[in-house]
């Protein structure tokens, strides 16, 4: 690496504090302006008084066997339910795992809390968190209720209060999906988004998510893919499978279901492969990040917290190599 570029990096590190402060303030306001483009930022202002406190990934890490740090010793969470998977190497060898339980996020009324401004609401006592935008409104099913946002009657001591959240809108079931796991929310301006009860669930194998909750084979519509750099630079060159490649799509869906969930943290360095988009007939698109290391393949579902699927490396490479770039 060019040491001159590194020198520049060190110089940039020492940019004056007042400039950094200005950028901090401006970038926050620009996020708020880009409502249409950034669903998470869209809700930041509303979420300011009722937030999910960030920390899932960190807390998951601290619960791992052998993980230790000064912070962990001083900041052990008591209220987080988390049962980490075994070491990924052991899992790759086929030993049993307890699975990964995605912890509930702490709900806070503290506007100054360091918070994860992710749109969410409480329904049936569960946290439903933003997953993806809805592309096809025809998937809406029954009306389930109205989320009224950070309502005055919210009382932290009572725990979760149905229909409170960081947003407002009408909740609908999604055709073909369990409303205990996946629902739609429609805002008054017509924006539609999927929300999933992804926290508090325990995932052991891929089937736990991609058969029981997202029945991908049953509702599969099409598959697209994108080179990693193309995605990184937002070039938009997303490719479709040809009709003769449907077996390839099925291979990928089987890979998903046959994988084993592990925590993102603690994994060895992963090499980026490609991005895959699986479109379901419910209008939901699942966006996957594909990686590998020396021994295994890994698949990450976008917006699905701190979990990776560990899959057979040779099968994953076969799938990637069968695609045309």
């Amino acid at each position: 690496m060019n040491h001159k570029a590194e020198t520049l990096y060190r110089g940039i590190t020492l940019i004056d504090d007042d400039i950094l402060q200005e950028v901090e303030e401006q970038s926050l306001s620009s996020k708020a302006r880009s409502k249409k483009r950034t669903p998470i930022a869209r809700y930041a202002a509303l979420a300011a008084c009722l937030v999910l406190v960030l920390g899932a990934a960190l807390l998951l890490h601290y619960h791992q066997p052998g993980a230790s740090s000064l912070v962990a010793e001083n900041n052990q969470p008591d209220s987080i339910s988390c049962y980490p998977a075994q070491d990924p190497k052991e899992q790759a060898s086929g030993t049993q795992t307890e699975g990964v339980t995605i912890p509930n996020m702490e709900v806070s009324l503290d506007a100054n809390a360091s918070a994860c401004m992710i749109p969410f609401f409480i329904y049936q006592g569960k946290q439903f968190i933003w997953l993806a935008e809805v592309e096809d409104p025809s998937v809406l099913g029954d009306h389930l209720g109205t989320v009224t946002g950070p309502i005055d009657v919210w009382t932290p001591a009572e725990g979760y209060v149905d229909f409170a959240g960081s947003i407002q809108g009408e909740i609908y079931s999604v055709q073909g999906s369990d409303p205990g796991f996946l629902v739609c929310l429609e805002e008054s301006n017509g924006n539609l988004a999927y929300f999933a009860n992804s926290v508090g669930i325990t995932l052991v194998t891929g089937s736990d998510l991609f058969r029981d909750r997202f029945p991908v084979q049953e509702h599969y519509l099409s598959l697209e893919y994108q080179a990693w750099d193309d995605w990184y630079y937002s070039q938009g060159n997303i490719r479709s499978l040809s009709p003769s490649q449907e077996d390839t799509a099925q291979d990928f869906l089987e890979l998903l279901q046959g994988g084993t969930f592990v925590l993102r943290t603690g994994l060895e360095e992963l090499t980026d492969l490609i991005h895959v988009y699986v479109h379901l007939d419910s209008g939901l698109t699942l966006h996957f990040f594909l990686h590998e290391n020396d021994t295994d393949g890994y698949i990450y579902l976008d917006n699905f917290w701190s979990t990776y699927l560990i899959v057979d490396k040779a099968a994953l490479e076969d799938f990637v190599s069968s695609l045309d770039f």
């Binding site: 940019i15 970038s27 620009s30 880009s34 950034t38 990184y232 937002s234």
Partner: peptide
Amino acid sequence: RVLFVRRYWHGVALNTLAEEAGIPS
């Protein structure tokens, strides 16, 4: 200024920055 600092001080990826700024990547 914001774009430069977000990219080269915070290390924000270009596609994310494009989203933030509302500019085609």
